[in-house]
Amino acid sequence: MNNWQTLSILMLLVSIFLTCERPLAEIPDETVGMAPVYYEGDWQTIQVLGAQPISRLHKIYYKDGYIFAGETSKGIHIIDNQDPTNPQKIKFIQIIGNSDIAIKGSLLYANNLNDLVVLDISDLEHISVRHRLENAFPQGTLITPPNYNGFFECPDPAMGQIQGWVEQTIQKPQCWQ
């Protein structure tokens, strides 16, 4: 075999590897997969309500005699715990898509979907938004459906923030994982 033949075979092999690098899934016309659910309306409005019933808690935070109990994706119960034998829910801060908080001094840092909101809690009767950092968490966990392998409808950033994912019939899905 001369050098040219060797080179040609090498190039052929390389080109095969290059084309095989990203194996394309066969895209079905229609299949059952996951589709994003977008938040409609004004998800950025932070509302402070009176005590609300607990439905599904997930996180806990404590500061200076107060418990902050996270209600999954909905907001935060503020519990006056100065008497641990008689804790009292006193406020509910409604923050759509909230999963985490941290507090320094009288400022509470929380995610509002993929935004970071900073609330002044120095006066619990007048909790206010001090400032907001939009899209602070662009790598939000909901960009792809969690714990799922298969086809899904590609998220459309123009549609806004993703609230969650639902299984449904999707046409010609262009995304999969």
Binding site: H58, K59, I60, Y61, Y62, K63, D64, G65, Y66, F68, I78, Q82, S99, D100, I101, A102, I103, K104, G105, S106, L107, Y109, N111, I121, S122, D123, L124, F137
Partner: peptide
Amino acid sequence: ATPGQSSSTGTGGSLARFTIKGDFLYT
């Protein structure tokens, strides 16, 4: 008698994904 009484940070649980150290918030 408010949660902002001290200038320090609060305490999170072990499942926390946010934490504050000095002038920095880590997520």
